[in-house]
Nucleic acid binder design. Structure first.
Length: 226
DNA sequence: TTCCAGGCAATAC
DNA sequence: GTATTGCATGGA
């Protein structure tokens, strides 16, 4: 078993299935989880079940850019309450009203624009390619991969700041390693399975929230011992 | 008060 | 091509 696999197994054993991506229509909760308790569906990989849920996940990936999920979730809930978790409605919505709805997620000026841009093309997106998504204003590599992995169920790994921080601390990459290099490293050392990729990214976030927030504590990370 | 969060685009060098 | 900067709310 390679080191990436060992890390994955350790995290899964330690925290259990994470049930990403959270959805507002799911009321289950996991009290062991940091951050929001709502919407996760651990062990159930059948979501999204509807186009509406798929769109909600995509909106969530945009709203949580450089933002805590608790803040992004507030914005998602406001959108839902105002019937705005729908591309046609978002396109018709007054821009200032849309900004007000997503205000708690921060960066609301740009994110409102990003949501409109994405809403324009969502209807045409059956199984979009990464390149298709990257052409859309406001969708970078991580957001594109998050949409592919959690909304469109494609086995593609999502790299984020936490992934780099952890692997760098374990001396498996350089701090400055490029996004796609890290992505390839992970993907080439794990079976290319949707469930595995979905879990691993979620587990990395959960683990990082516990051990990689304070800079002086990275050396206490339990992964250093495996 | 300061720092950080499930990044991205625009600009500067 | 690489490094820096602006964007913003809410919690610790």
């Amino acid at each position: 078993m390679n080191r990436i696999e060992k890390i994955y197994k350790y995290l899964l054993r330690t925290y259990g299935p994470q049930g990403w991506w959270p959805l507002t229509s799911i009321k289950g909760s996991n009290p062991t989880k940091t951050g929001s308790l709502n919407g996760y569906h651990p062990g159930d990989y059948s979501y999204p079940k509807t186009k509406k849920q798929r769109f909600e996940i995509c909106c969530g990936t945009i709203l949580t850019q450089n933002t805590s999920w608790s803040n992004a979730e507030r914005a998602v809930l406001k959108l839902k309450k105002n019937k705005l978790l729908d591309p046609a409605t978002i396109l018709m919505c007054d821009e200032n009203k849309l900004k007000e709805m997503i205000r708690p997620a921060g960066y609301y000026n740009q994110k409102a624009r990003y949501l409109k841009e994405f809403s324009k093309v969502f209807g045409k997106m059956k199984k979009p390619s990464r390149e298709d998504l990257l052409k859309i204003k406001g969708i970078g590599k991580e957001t594109a991969d998050s949409m592919l992995l959690y909304a469109f169920k494609m086995p593609t790994f999502v790299v984020d700041a936490y992934t780099k921080r952890i692997l760098s601390n374990l001396d498996m990459i350089q701090e400055t390693e490029r996004y796609d290099a890290v992505k390839t490293l992970i993907e080439s050392n794990l079976p290319a399975e949707l469930e595995t990729y979905q879990e691993f990214h979620a587990l990395i976030v959960e683990h990082a929230k516990r051990h990689y927030v304070k800079k002086g504590e990275y050396h206490l990370c339990p992964l250093l011992n495996i």
